[in-house]
Structures are given as C-alpha cells and as structure tokens.
C-alpha cells in the first residue's frame, strides 16, 4: 500500500470538512463537519505512526479522540444555549459582531 493513499484520503476528508464548516447553515452540521476534520487528522497520525514504527502516533490519535469528545460536548451545549436564547441555530442569524 502506498503511504499517499491514506494521506490523500485524509486531505480530502479535511477539505470536505472545511466545506461543511463554511457552507452549512445549521450549527449542529458545523460541529459534525469539525468532527470530519478531526478524523482526517487522526488518519495522518496513525499512518505516520505505522510508517515510522512508533506507537506515539496512536497515542496522539487517542488524545485527539478524547479532545474531540470534549469539544462536541461543549459545542453542543453552546448550540443548545444559542437555540434557547435565539430560537434558531442558523449561523447566518448570528452577526452581533457586525461592524
């Protein structure tokens, strides 16, 4: 197997995740797309771990999974709070920072 098979798959998933974050209007969908990006990173970590014969890659992938879990928890709480306060989770609606 080529190293690049996995790396390019990761790059593709990352780009798809970026598209999701930038284009989707639903707050929950944005969070899901972020998960996609995090998973793309995980592929790279595991593949390079295998390539270099070290276990650190897997360990860091584990940490990423743990951090992603924390991120989803807090992110969904924020989305919930937004929904409660604004009765909408459409990110287009939130432009309080408009100059």
């Amino acid at each position: 197997m080529l190293l690049n098979q996995f790396l390019i798959l990761g790059a593709f998933l990352f780009a798809v995740g970026v598209y999701g974050v930038l284009a989707r209007r639903n707050g929950v969908m944005v969070l899901m797309s972020i998960e996609l990006m995090l998973n793309a990173v995980n592929i790279n970590l595991v593949v390079f771990g295998v390539q270099h014969g070290v276990v650190s890659g897997q360990v860091f992938a584990l940490f990423v999974i743990a951090v992603a879990a924390a991120e989803v928890g807090v992110g969904l709480a924020i989305v919930l709070l937004l929904y409660r306060n604004r009765t909408s989770i459409d990110v287009e609606d939130f432009d309080l920072m408009r100059g």
């Binding site: 974050v21 930038l22 284009a23 990110v91 287009e92 939130f94 432009d95 309080l96 920072m97 408009r98 100059g99």
Partner: peptide, 8 residues
C-alpha cells in the same frame, strides 16, 4: 464596512 459579523 468590511465586517459582516458572520462567523462563516
């Protein structure tokens, strides 16, 4: 004027 306030 260049600032929309939209996160995306």
């Amino acid at each position: 004027a260049i600032q929309s306030g939209k996160v995306q």
